[in-house]
Design a protein around this nucleic acid. Structure first.
Lengths: 222, 222
DNA sequence: GATTGTTTAAAACAGTCGTTTGATTTTTCG
DNA sequence: CGAAAAATCAAACGACTGTTTTAAACAATC
């Protein structure tokens, strides 16, 4: 019974924090949403701040990491990259796990609190190392480039993160209908092709020839 | 005298809103920072919300748009792209204009308020159209691709926005020293080369040959 | 210098914030 | 069952929120 209240609080708080930020979400709203008394936060977590880090911990312990790394065992490198990208995209799209997990993490990364260092060490760093390994596998020598190849990795993940952070802008720019057609699979294909082409692997983004023709778009093997 | 108070308020509020968000910034902190009485906000702007949109208007009327579009008259297309990217990067780095302008805009775009539509129409849309024009110039046919070529444009700007949104993460991942070496010119070169290679124009990112050798990195003409 | 209208100042407004209290219910277990 | 522990509740705490009020200081015009 007690554990259930804890869970409902984390879920309600996670949604609130992800949507309105730490200051924007009031404990009364959170408790109303969770269907518990206001005192429950203090009883189960101590204070609002501790509830926040509990949400963050739940978010980073989510299956997303598993999903991501699962897409990268010992497949061919291009397929690994595609799996990595698709995994990140799928984590922000809603398989079934709470949608606020990624949103909260992004908020923390864009405007770090004191809890950011832990999130980075346990969640971001492993992802970054995995991506660097994949990229080195695809284009040997990329890790030896200037700044240890970090910018190349950033160029890849930035394309994924863009759709997580700026989704509202995308919707407004493209229009509602066109936006909804941007599903996970399409975006994963596009970002993978764009990145592979930049790395000199695979055809460039407009197609094998200079002038693109319908139906010739090639999908990355997976 | 009255206009000076207005200006000081917008500047202090802009910094506060950009740093701590709308809810996180209190009117008393803002007024203290600006060195004016609390009642000044109500007298000059009406309420906190109106002060916020005043900040947003100042931010989007900034010279950044001018800087950006100035880098794209009738140069060769590759140089236009480089200028566009460098312009966006320079706007978030601090030439001399207030640093909060970009940060506030990014906040508004990531978590739109009712004022977002106006910002998008007057600030984002022209930028997007300019980029699409440049990309079509570089790779004719890209606008005719799936989803009107929007994803290609997103892949370019996302790389720029990444350093604006996730700068703290970059700093923590690379380390303080390495991060500080990522100046505007280097990033502009990198993102331009990455994007051009993806479009099939210019060498791929690891260098003209598969194995990169030091000192052969080519800089985009400007 | 008196009289406008405009701008600042200190104090207080009602409301909400996160947090705590103390009593009451529910659960656990010998 | 009955006592001890755990959990929930309504109510209130002081502090802070955005906003308003009232009066004083300033500026400009006659």
């Amino acid at each position: 019974m007690a554990e259930e209240v804890r869970g409902r609080l984390i879920d309600a708080a996670g949604r609130a924090f992800a949507e309105r930020g730490f200051e924007g979400a009031s404990v009364r709203d959170i408790c109303n949403d969770a269907g518990v008394n206001v005192a429950a936060i203090n009883y189960h977590f101590g204070d609002k701040q501790s509830l926040y880090v509990a949400c963050l911990e739940q978010a980073q312990c989510s299956e997303s990491r598993q999903t991501l790394l699962a897409a990268a065992p010992s497949l061919p490198p291009e397929a690994r990259l595609h799996g990595f990208i698709r995994g990140m995209l799928a984590a922000q799209g809603d398989p079934d796990r709470p949608r606020w997990h990624n949103a909260l993490m992004l908020r923390e990364m864009a405007h770090p609190t004191t809890a950011a260092a832990e999130v980075l060490k346990r969640y971001i760093r492993p992802l970054a190392e995995t991506l660097r390994e994949i990229l080195e596998q695809i284009s040997p020598g990329v890790s030896g480039m200037s700044h240890d190849g970090w910018p190349v990795g950033f160029s890849v993940v930035s394309q994924v993160l863009f759709y997580a952070v700026h989704r509202p802008v995308v919707r407004l720019l493209m229009g509602e209908a066109e936006h909804d057609a941007l599903d996970v699979d399409f975006l994963a294909d596009h970002i993978t092709r764009f990145s592979l082409a930049a790395l000199g692997r695979g055809p460039n983004i407009v197609g094998p020839s200079a002038a693109p023709s319908a139906g010739t778009r090639k999908t990355v093997q997976r």
